[in-house]
Computed example of a mutant assay.
Amino acid sequence: MAILLLIMIYLAFISLGLPDSLLGAAWPVMQTDFAQPLETAGLLYMIIAAGTILSSLASGWLNEKLGTGKVTCISVALTALALLGIGYSTSLAWLIICAIPLGLGAGAIDASLNNYVALHYKAHHMHWLHCFWGVGASIGPIMMSYYMVNQGTWRAGYVTIAYIQFSLAFLLVLALPLWAIVSQKTKTEEEHKVNPDDPKLDYEVKPLKIKGVKYALFTFFFYCGVESTLGLWGSSYLVNSKGLSAAMAAQGVSFFYTGIMIGRLITGFILLKVSDHQLLIRIGQITALIGAMLLILPLPVMMSLVGFTIVGLGLAPIYPCMIHETPVRFGKTHSQSIIGYQMAVAYTGTTFLPPMLGLIASYTSIAIFPYFALAYVIAMLIGSEKLNEMMRTRIRE
């Protein structure tokens, strides 16, 4: 039963990844169709992210009222409706309306499933879970590129993925009884070395007052800033600064998501033998730093594509490692709330950092893109190292 449910959770994360990369891949063409300036994509991204923040913050309450299974079903159906609406939108106003449920659905899935897997499954499953998000995020631009090349439209990409989401929502409805069965049989204490009575953790304090939580939030803020910036503006950068066609640029952005996917698949296998999450996070951040520096150097366009891939490989272990460490670092008593906060702050980074780049680029040039990406990676690294230092101090105490 646990394996069957895990398969359904993996499928749900594919569905979570599918829409995430569509807007960035399609925007060079959508921008022309809707006669909008470059920065409008940033506005849409902000609206999607705002919905995600709200549903992430409400994830604890939603799970308590409905349970993870029902929250996941409803959220997938909501994203399917939103994607279908975008595919048939005739104006910017409709895009804005459809962006709201798209964000609400994504945030609820993300926070709920991350906490469920952190509590009920081993660490390598968390990485493979996010690897499947990478599968969805990689397929999205490839499908969009296919439809733009063969049918000359971005709309078919949105509509097709909407129907995939509806199919998954139906399967999740059928799988609803599995959630209760697995929750009853899984012993979370065996999966995490977390003792609710650990004197080193004050479980009476509010989640945001626990030592290290704020540095974790800071790291998530810039992690999602990097990921969403490359996903949203990477295609526009490759078209306008590197001279690639829109279809080729969409495929180039898929290399970034493929790097995330492959990196998380490999990390899952590494964690079968090695359990040092902090080391994996540090290696990932240094790798992302190298990839971002490649984007800045005046190299041939193929090296830019290599840079995108290396940044993806570097980002791969960071998010799932930090999520799975949440119950260990801060206690499972507060894990759902803290993971919800982490998702909310992460999507706050998504809300403000890419649009800020788009706004500045509209007055200057999209050529500033790699410099912003590098700055976000450096900020993420600083936050993570500060968190690690605080965790080491707590252990010594």
Rank of each mutant, 00 (worst) to 15 (best):
A12N: 08
L18P: 06
P19M: 01
A25G: 09
V29R: 08
P37N: 06
P37A: 00
E39K: 01
Y45H: 12
S56K: 03
W61H: 14
G67K: 09
T68Y: 15
K70G: 00
V71A: 03
S75C: 03
V76R: 12
A77D: 01
A82F: 00
L83W: 00
L84M: 10
I86E: 04
S91L: 10
W94Y: 15
I96M: 08
I97W: 14
L104W: 02
G107M: 04
Y116W: 10
V117M: 10
V117I: 15
H125V: 09
F132S: 04
I139C: 09
M144G: 09
S145N: 05
G157C: 03
I161Q: 02
Y163E: 05
L168G: 11
F170R: 04
Q184G: 13
K185R: 12
H192I: 14
V194M: 00
D197C: 01
P199W: 03
L208Q: 11
K209T: 02
Y215I: 00
A216T: 08
F220G: 07
Y223T: 08
Y223F: 13
C224V: 15
C224F: 14
S228Y: 09
L230E: 07
L230I: 12
W233T: 00
Y237L: 03
L238T: 06
A247L: 06
M248F: 10
F256T: 11
I260A: 09
I262D: 08
L265H: 01
I266A: 14
G268F: 03
P298D: 10
M303S: 07
M303L: 13
T333D: 11
A344P: 06
F352S: 12
G358H: 06
F369H: 11
Y371S: 05
F372S: 06
Y376G: 04
